[in-house]
């Protein structure tokens, strides 16, 4: 469903000159799996996912999302995905219902199917209470629910979550992870970036570990543990990062 090939992104920075945020990332994510992208802050996770959601353009490489090219067919790509990150907020001066309806219409859903879909979503995500509540009056948990509803209102085959649990309390984060697992069970292809190892262990079928824009390791969690002879994912993560740091320093 997602094929990224040698994706790169470089910026021109006043101090550092050309700064490579993403350096030749290649991976494939399939239907019915959660593909985790693990990495510390600044690893290039957000850049990679922004490229997949066509918000940014790569400076090298290519990515195909459900058959559409992220560079030449951005509108079609955006119809295939639901994107949610810490940077995708809800509108303060719109109610939950209005916001989800607005995005549903932008995805081109007709009135009646949209109303049915929204009724179903609001019921499943237990959002009926906040239906007419303005975004400005919502708690973080409520906002997160609205964001999920907004991202899946068009029932996309692919979902991209970029550190979606960042800043959430334990209860809301758990509800969020449950929602992701449910979507995976529905056969969606999910790309889930995080720097919290427990989330990755709990949710991801396969993971990619990234640091300084590069892919350090990729594969099934058990296979990775076995390959690196390290049962603890967090330790495995640190080892890989340190190895990379040593290479860079040398």
């Amino acid at each position: 469903m997602i094929q990224a090939h040698e994706l790169s992104k470089a910026y021109v920075d006043l101090h550092r000159g050309e700064f490579v945020a993403l350096d030749g990332l290649s991976f494939q994510a399939n239907r019915g799996e959660v593909y985790g992208i693990l990495g510390p802050n600044g690893a290039g996770k957000t850049t990679a996912l922004r490229i997949l959601s066509t918000v940014l353009q790569p400076t090298g490489g290519s990515a195909i999302v459900n058959g559409y090219d992220v560079v030449t067919q951005p509108s079609q790509v955006r119809r295939q995905i639901g994107f949610m990150s810490a940077n995708t907020a809800v509108y303060d001066r719109m109610t939950a219902w209005e916001m989800v309806e607005y995005f549903g219409r932008l995805y081109g859903i007709e009135d009646e199917p949209l109303r049915e879909r929204m009724e179903d979503l609001f019921e499943r995500l237990q959002m009926q209470e906040i239906r007419d509540l303005l975004g400005a009056k919502m708690s973080t948990g409520m906002k997160q629910k609205v964001s999920i509803a907004r991202a899946i209102v068009h029932d996309p085959p692919i979902l991209i979550f970029d550190e979606a649990t960042s800043g959430l309390d334990v209860l809301v984060a758990r509800a969020m992870l449950d929602a992701v697992a449910e979507l995976r069970d529905q056969g969606k292809c999910i790309v889930f970036s995080t720097h919290i190892m427990r989330e990755a262990e709990r949710l991801c079928d396969r993971v990619a570990i990234m640091h300084r824009g590069r892919l350090l390791a990729e594969g099934n969690l058990d296979a990775l543990r076995e390959q690196h002879d390290q049962p603890d994912l967090e330790e495995l993560f640190f080892e890989l990062i340190h190895q990379q740091e040593a290479v860079v320093t040398a």
Binding site: S53, S75, R78, R79, T88
Partner: peptide, 14 residues
């Protein structure tokens, strides 16, 4: 500032 621009940019609207 409110973080809603990126939300709109990820919609199919050009």
């Amino acid at each position: 500032e409110r973080g809603t621009l990126e939300t709109l940019l990820t919609s199919p609207a050009m």
